[in-house]
Amino acid sequence: MKKKLSEMDYDEKGTVIEIDRDLQKRVAGMGIRVGKKLRMITKQPIKGPVDVIVDEAETSLGLELADRIIVEVD
């Protein structure tokens, strides 16, 4: 099932399938690109960031970024 990264549930795993073009470079330095597997570990309330695990390492994404990354959940 496809959903936005910001809509993932706790501990849900998925594979990145789409990133807004103008965002691709911005998140590449954080290890996020199409084809990457990730796991959502924390979501902060009140429009706070989304934390994911990519390659065994934690990364925190602002909600406005997480809204524009599409993930195919396992």
């Binding site: 590449a28 330095g29 954080m30 290890g31 390659d55 065994e56 390492a57």
Partner: peptide, 12 residues
């Protein structure tokens, strides 16, 4: 590079 997070390090 942090060897345990090699991919993003290699990007830089």
């Amino acid at each position: 590079i942090d060897a345990s997070k090699i991919e993003r390090g290699l990007y830089l």
